[in-house]
Simulated scan of single mutants.
Amino acid sequence: MTGPSALTIGCYPYDTTRQLFERPVTVDGLDAVVTTAPTLPEIFERTVRGDEFDVAELGLTFYLRLLETGLPFVALPVFPNRVFRHSCVFVNTHSGITGPRDLAGRTIGEFGTYGQDSGVWAKGVLMDEYGFRPERSRWVIGGLERPAAPFDFVPHPHPADVEVTTAPEGRALGAMLEAGEIDALFSANVPQCVLDGSPHVARLFPDHEAVERDYHRRTGVFPIMHAVVVRRDLLRARPGLARALYDLFSRAKDAAADRYREHRRLYQIPTMIPWANALFERAQEEFPEDWWPYGVAANRRTLEAYLRHHHEQGLSTRRLAVEEVFAAELLDT
């Protein structure tokens, strides 16, 4: 902590957290200093390596990997980042990959670590829906647009029968995919070659929105990437802090939802996206109540799916229960 009356919070400025950056924040009698970083891995690394943050956004797999080694943080059921991940699998168009079963025997890139949150979800969905087996492919870990070593601030577990190597020195995964040096790529971010319209790269699921909507209707799962964590010693010292933080992040998220509801009157004109209002109305049909729920009860099915995927992919030594992952005082949410 920065002082007896200060609380440091590190998170990305999403719609769900924007309100925290727009006005002074006080939590449980503590003035909060809310900061961010250019990229999410930087927030994660600064959280894991030191005592810079009292409260921080952290990827679920980073949290779970460190939970078994004594991480001094505990998660709150606050989920500022969630994305359907059928869209995050990219293939080289000359590889002959036309569907999930064609990934067997191929070389696949993944950013930063084997089993990033986006990769855990993508692999898990492919395993459940299409019989995909990660051990039947070869995995290359590296940077997306710039050469980079695997993250060195978290453990890198993987099953012994899964072949995992690092990208060649001086090579980045996006360029390797476009050049055909890897056949496919699991990536949380859209590679620049895709944004540039390269004919050599495409999504595994070109009509991913329809596939993702069907997946959600059948399973009720809306994949969660990140949670908010808080220092355990701080919660012991301030018993009401977990609930106060949960309420703080919930209000910020609800304020964002209210902005979209109000902007519906204006055809979402504060955004630059054509037909944004039509998208809002389609999403409202899919999510008639809370689009982005926090709390344990509303997310139990999604959380249990993630914990199962994490264990099945050899990233956890055992399958954790939801009750083991989140602060005990918020299990009733």
Score class of each variant (00 low, 15 high):
278 A>N: 09
138 R>P: 00
151 F>H: 01
141 I>S: 03
189 N>V: 09
24 P>F: 01
39 T>F: 01
282 R>N: 04
125 V>Q: 11
44 F>W: 13
224 I>Y: 12
221 V>E: 09
178 E>H: 03
52 E>P: 06
142 G>L: 00
26 T>Q: 12
116 Q>P: 14
178 E>L: 03
283 A>K: 06
306 Y>V: 00
217 R>Q: 15
94 H>R: 13
247 D>Q: 03
321 A>Q: 15
232 R>T: 12
32 A>E: 09
248 L>R: 02
75 A>L: 11
245 L>E: 02
139 W>K: 04
229 V>Y: 13
239 P>E: 03
198 S>P: 12
169 E>L: 00
7 L>K: 08
262 E>C: 11
209 E>Y: 08
53 F>P: 06
156 H>K: 12
243 R>Y: 03
83 V>C: 04
203 R>F: 11
319 R>L: 09
152 D>K: 05
68 E>F: 06
145 E>L: 00
68 E>Y: 05
76 L>I: 06
44 F>C: 02
264 R>E: 10
173 L>D: 11
204 L>W: 06
236 R>V: 06
103 L>Q: 04
235 L>S: 11
247 D>F: 01
18 R>Y: 13
124 G>L: 14
276 A>M: 11
271 T>G: 07
282 R>C: 04
94 H>E: 15
1 M>I: 14
263 H>Y: 15
184 A>T: 10
34 V>S: 08
319 R>E: 15
25 V>A: 10
308 R>F: 02
322 V>T: 14
261 R>V: 08
93 T>I: 05
195 L>C: 12
154 V>Y: 03
280 F>H: 06
295 G>D: 00
19 Q>D: 12
175 A>H: 09
204 L>P: 00
173 L>G: 10
236 R>F: 02
115 G>M: 07
215 Y>T: 08
255 A>H: 04
188 A>R: 01
156 H>N: 08
17 T>R: 00
155 P>M: 01
8 T>Q: 04
264 R>P: 10
251 R>W: 03
47 T>G: 06
261 R>H: 13
13 P>T: 00
2 T>N: 04
281 E>Q: 13
333 T>R: 09
312 E>C: 05
178 E>C: 05
17 T>V: 08
193 C>G: 10
270 P>V: 15
302 T>V: 02
186 F>H: 13
316 S>E: 14
199 P>F: 11
214 D>I: 06
144 L>N: 02
79 F>W: 13
248 L>K: 00
115 G>C: 12
58 L>Q: 03
36 T>Q: 01
92 N>A: 12
108 I>E: 14
117 D>P: 08
316 S>G: 14
269 I>G: 09
77 P>K: 15
221 V>F: 14
154 V>D: 01
200 H>E: 01
180 G>T: 09
306 Y>P: 11
25 V>H: 07
147 P>F: 02
221 V>H: 13
200 H>Q: 10
308 R>K: 11
87 S>Q: 05
306 Y>R: 00
127 M>N: 07
3 G>E: 11
262 E>P: 07
97 I>W: 04
14 Y>D: 04
